[in-house]
Nucleic acid binder design. Sequence first.
DNA 1: CGTGCCATTGAGCCGGTTCAAAGCCGGTGG
DNA 2: CCACCGGCTTTGAACCGGCTCAATGGCACG
Lengths: 224, 224
Amino acid sequence: MTDQELAFMERFKIGEMTVEPGTPLLSEGANSPQIFTALSGFGLRFKMLPDGRRQVLSMIFPGDLIGLQAGVMREMTHNIEATTAMKLCVFNRNELWSLYKTHPSRAYDLTWIASSEERFLGEALTAIGQKSAMESLAWALSRVFRRLEALDMLEGNSVPLPYRQQDLADALGLSLVHTNKTLAKLRERQIASWADGRLSVSDLEQLEEIGLVEGGPPPARPLM
Amino acid sequence: MTDQELAFMERFKIGEMTVEPGTPLLSEGANSPQIFTALSGFGLRFKMLPDGRRQVLSMIFPGDLIGLQAGVMREMTHNIEATTAMKLCVFNRNELWSLYKTHPSRAYDLTWIASSEERFLGEALTAIGQKSAMESLAWALSRVFRRLEALDMLEGNSVPLPYRQQDLADALGLSLVHTNKTLAKLRERQIASWADGRLSVSDLEQLEEIGLVEGGPPPARPLM
DNA sequence: CGTGCCATTGAGCCGGTTCAAAGCCGGTGG
DNA sequence: CCACCGGCTTTGAACCGGCTCAATGGCACG
């Protein structure tokens, strides 16, 4: 970054913030003045239905930008919650527009990020809409594994994955019971095993094959 | 627009183009040098699985931007096809970056569009993942109706909707048969009826209630 | 030592799927 | 002018993947 960019980021960045597990960061309908970047910890992005059903849209990992929607549109259309303790970098939404005027390459990155999230949701939609429970699950696990691997969180053959089975079930539109049973099958077949907040994958290739994962690692994400 | 903007758009816009029904506009994996805006006609955005299953991601209506993903990322991750004859405005992808440098407000619009599409996919994911067939269908029909209404295509109580039931089924992750039977129920209940390429809604309020649609009309979309 | 959250497992059921067949066009060629 | 064909919609019937209900067990915490 240039000096000028640094100076701008100084103004754009408000500060840092640490939150407890379970803290709601942004809520549906809110018009928050803040945008965050996750520095550490894990979170969930989800939508609720009036009767309590929940759709998890994505898991939030370190490096992810949070609240771009609220930044660029009027208001938030989904909720964001910290699953573990999280450290966040806080940005001032009001400076977003001046970023577009003065730092086009950063602006371009933002479009890239939004576009990349759209791409992910398209994949998720395809998984939920078309794939069987086993296929979706394998898709989700391999996707998560690849991303955490790219974040350099791989230790041995396992990555941290501190969520409940209910969270994954809500992400895949499956029931908790069926998610549990399908996970058990993957474990029995010695392909992948998720316990105690860690996901171990012993046969990634087969996992991706089951999940009908289309080639290639996920694209690298510019940091904001 | 200012003169300067007009001059730029002149360079950015390559020309116009008309395509036949069924023409593929962009394909998965392609790295197309073009970005389009639909001027008239209808299209589909979808992903295919290796075994032929298809997930429709969204319907493309006049005014929609096509191919932003290919523009901003390396390559396309879904297919786009013209359902009816379409008239398109063609832009030069290579000028995209200079747009960011010289026209920040247009750049902002692009992020807005990408973000808005992400928002839509999140809603779709929630419909497919959590809602019953009847709920999803009502959601989809009311969504489509609202959008076409906003495009000023409402005549009487009906809007054009020139797709096959199979297309809608693939969008909602339902079988063709069940989609048909669920549509029949909405027709019997005198709520909405879709035939001969037109969707008539006689009780929009009830349709949105069944579909668990959260308030408000969809946000207006900046034209590119 | 109780209490609550989460994972696990069994049993029965149901919303939605698959299979199959028939009806309804509009287009085409004889 | 009519017979035929292909794409789409409609309807009936049987089946099944995944859901719901229910109970148990492990573990952390007060």
